[in-house]
Design a protein around this nucleic acid. Structure first.
Lengths: 187, 187
DNA sequence: TCACGACGGAACGGTCCCGTCCCACCGGAC
DNA sequence: GTCCGGTGGGACGGGACCGTTCCGTCGTGA
C-alpha cells in the first residue's frame, strides 16, 4: 500500500541528512523536509530515528562483495585497497562512517548493525583473501586470523578516515599492499 | 579572578558529558548541571560549546609523550602499543575519540584540533621511533614515512575503536609489533 | 570593615523538535 | 463513479536548550 517512491525518497534523505548533520543532530522533521514528504509518511514506516537508520545500515550489509582472486596475496590486497579507497573517497561514506561508529559506541543495537555491515563488507572480503592465501600455502596456517584482519584493514582506515588525508600519493596503495603482505607472511 | 576549582569542575564535566552523550547531544546546560555550576560560570569562560571543547582538546595535545628507545624497532613498537592500548581501554577515550572524529569530519576547526592532538601524541611518538630506527640503519631511508605511520597506528586503532574488541588476546600486542616491524622493514 | 566580583540559581523570550492528530486531496481498485 | 487509504501540510501541547539577564550570597583583597 505504501508508495515505494516515497519510501525511496526518505531513504535517500536519511543518507544526506546523516552525512550533513550526523546521526545525533538528525531529526525526523529534517528528513521529511529534505525528502519533500510529510512527517506522517516517515512515522508510518518506521517507529523512530533509530529504527530508520538501523534498517538502512542493515540493508547495506546484505550486499556481499565479490573477493578478488588473483592467485597472489599482495595483488588481492591491492585490489581490495583500490575498491575500499574509492568507496572511502565518497564524502558520503567518510562522513557517515565515523558518525555511525560514534553512535555505536553508545548504542548496542547500532553497534551490532555496524559490525554486521563491516563483517559482510570489508572484513568479509579480507577474510576470503586470507583463506585463499592460506590454502595456497602462501602464508602459514594457525596464526591469529583477527590480527591479520587488523593488519589489512587498519592502515587504510586510519589514513582515510582518522588522519583524513585528502588524497593518497601515487603508489601508496601498491606499497601498502606489499608491506601488509609481508607483515602477514611474517606472522 | 575566576575560581580555578570551578574551571576544573567544568572541564571534568565536559569529559563526562562527552563520553556519555557525545559532542552533538552535549549541552551547556547539561555540563553546568553535571559540574554543579551555574550556566553563567561556563559562559564567563567560553563563548560556546565549540570553544569549550576545542580548548580542552588542544590542552590534551600539549602533553608531549616520551618516546621509547630500546634500540630495536620491534621493542619500541611493543612499548608504544602497550601504552596506547592501555589508554584506549579507558571507556572515556574509546567513547570520546570516535565522537570527536565524527565532529571533525564536519568542522574544520575541530579537525585541526584533533589532528594536532594526534600529531603531538600517538603520531609524534611513532615518528620518533621511526627516525631512531632509520638512524640505526634498521630500516631503509627515503621510504614513505606517512605510510609507515599508518602501518604503525592503523591496526590497533581499527581493532580497539572500530571493531571495538573488548580485550585483546594474550600475545596480541607482541605479534602486532613483530608483524608491523617486518612490514616497515619491507618498505 | 567594606566593596567588588565571581558564584549558584532562576527566569526570560526564542527556537527546534518530539509524536500525535486532523485536514483536504488525489490516484487506483472495484 | 465511488470508495479507500496513502499523501503533503499544518497545528497541537510538551520538552529541551539557547544565550541573556537579574537576583541574593559569599569570599577575598584592600
Amino acid at each position: 500500500m505504501l508508495r515505494e517512491d516515497v519510501t525511496e525518497a526518505i531513504r535517500a534523505a536519511v543518507f544526506e541528512e546523516l552525512a550533513s548533520v550526523g546521526y545525533a543532530r538528525m531529526s525526523i522533521e529534517g528528513i521529511a523536509r529534505r525528502a519533500g514528504v510529510g512527517k506522517t509518511a516517515v512515522y508510518r514506516r518506521w517507529r523512530s530515528k533509530l529504527h530508520l537508520v538501523l534498517d538502512i545500515v542493515s540493508a547495506l550489509a546484505v550486499q556481499g562483495l565479490p573477493a578478488p582472486d588473483t592467485g597472489s596475496l599482495e595483488d588481492d590486497l591491492r585490489l581490495l585497497y583500490e575498491v575500499t579507497s574509492r568507496a572511502l573517497r565518497h564524502p558520503l561514506a567518510s562522513q557517515i562512517l565515523p558518525d555511525l561508529q560514534a553512535e555505536a559506541a553508545r548504542n548496542p543495537d547500532m553497534a551490532e548493525a555496524v559490525q554486521k555491515a563491516l563483517r559482510d563488507g570489508q572484513e568479509g572480503v579480507a577474510s576470503k583473501i586470507l583463506v585463499a592465501a592460506e590454502q595456497r600455502g602462501e602464508i602459514r596456517a594457525g596464526h591469529d586470523d583477527e590480527l591479520a584482519l587488523d593488519l589489512i584493514s587498519g592502515p587504510l582506515y586510519w589514513r582515510s578516515v582518522v588522519i583524513r588525508s585528502p588524497k593518497l600519493p601515487k603508489g601508496y596503495l601498491g606499497a601498502l599492499a606489499r608491506a601488509t603482505a609481508e607483515a602477514i607472511k611474517a606472522l
